[in-house]
Simulated assay, not measured.
Amino acid sequence: MTSLLSNYSSKIRPIKNQGGSLQMSIDLFLANINDISTTEQKMTTTGYLKVKWTDELLVWNSTTTGMYWMQFNQKDIWIPDVVVKNGLTAFKMMGGDFYYIYVYNDGAVYWYPYTVFETSCDLDVTHFPFDTQTCSVIIKSWSYSRWEVNFTIGSDKIDAGEKMGYSVTIFLTFAVFLTIVSAELPMNSDSTSILNVYLIIELAISIMGIIISSVQLRLNHRKPGKKIGEVFCKLVRAGRILRCEKSNVKGCFLKPCRGADNTKIDVIDCKSKMENYPQDDSVEEEEDEIEWSDVSSAIDFFSFWILLSVQIIVTVVIFSYAKSN
């Protein structure tokens, strides 16, 4: 570490061509939405950033050293002066001297600054309670232009863990709502309110959502080398067919589908496509490759439509019964 930092300056961008732009990817992971104030027009959230870039001056031979990564204190190496542009608290750089940054032997740098975001948010309650609000957390480098430091959105997506947290929130919402409604209903030991029955069914649907999210989370994080059962493979193939994706028939759709813009997708000429494929089994095996993330996605696809159908049927039946009586 000492030899790497001997001629290193934390005030200079870590690229050999100082006329070029340093490419950085950034992801925002929300841990909690603490508060949304309509009167103060602000949103308070807790979370952290995942900032990745390549430091061309911190590269070493992992074969000779036996070290593939090291941790550096934030103050010892160059980091971008990341700030929250639409923040409402003190304007300061994220991170701190107690932060340690992961640096790998190829120069890849990973920085995870954690903070509480208090950001401005224009809230329009004209259509409440059927309104949709969009709040932004604007992150930028204050001292560098995009020609010097260019931020791009990273590739990390929402995982099943966030879905499970959302499912638990919905469950607790219905539980609290059921408690409030039960307290306001007249006491009667001979009959049960239809509204109570409806809320109990909603609780059951929420519990099913939590169970499904738990299964998704477990399957999504299974080791890639673990064998996938035939049932899961059939589920993935069925989901691909229903979503108009290619199955393992070497580039041919099983039937015509329509895209998002309502344009017809014609059936691919299988005969002409087959002529372009090599006569071996390598292509078929490649196209038939299924990972555990595909299994999790297929379960999510089918669960969404099944629970949505149950939700619609239950709502229509119960409220139709209540209206008829």
Rank of each mutant, 00 (worst) to 15 (best):
D76T: 05
I77R: 07
E56S: 07
D81C: 08
V83R: 15
V84L: 02
K85E: 10
D55W: 11
M70P: 00
D81Y: 11
L58V: 03
G87K: 08
K85P: 00
K75A: 00
E56T: 05
F72C: 01
V82R: 08
W60S: 03
N73S: 01
A90E: 15
W60R: 04
V82E: 06
I79A: 07
Q74L: 00
W60N: 03
T65V: 10
N61D: 15
T64Q: 15
K52L: 12
I79F: 07
S62A: 14
I77N: 05
Q71G: 00
M67C: 06
V59H: 08
F91T: 12
I77H: 06
W78G: 03
N86S: 02
G87H: 09
V84I: 10
D81N: 15
W69G: 02
D55K: 06
I79R: 13
L88Y: 10
D76W: 01
D81W: 09
E56V: 04
T89S: 14
M70E: 07
L88M: 15
K85Q: 10
M67W: 09
Y68D: 06
I77W: 07
V59C: 04
W69H: 10
T63I: 13
T54H: 13
I77K: 06
N61W: 11
L58A: 02
N86T: 03
V82Q: 07
N61F: 11
V82D: 06
V59F: 08
F91R: 15
D76G: 00
N86C: 03
E56H: 10
P80H: 13
L58I: 04
T65A: 05
W78C: 05
N86Y: 05
M67R: 14
S62W: 12
V82A: 09
K52W: 06
L57W: 08
T54I: 15
Q71C: 00
Y68M: 02
E56N: 08
D55G: 05
N86A: 02
V59N: 05
V83S: 02
K85R: 10
L58K: 04
N86I: 02
D81T: 11
Q74W: 00
V83M: 10
V84G: 01
D55H: 09
G66I: 09
T89H: 12
T89W: 11
K50D: 12
D76V: 00
V83H: 13
G87T: 10
M70Q: 09
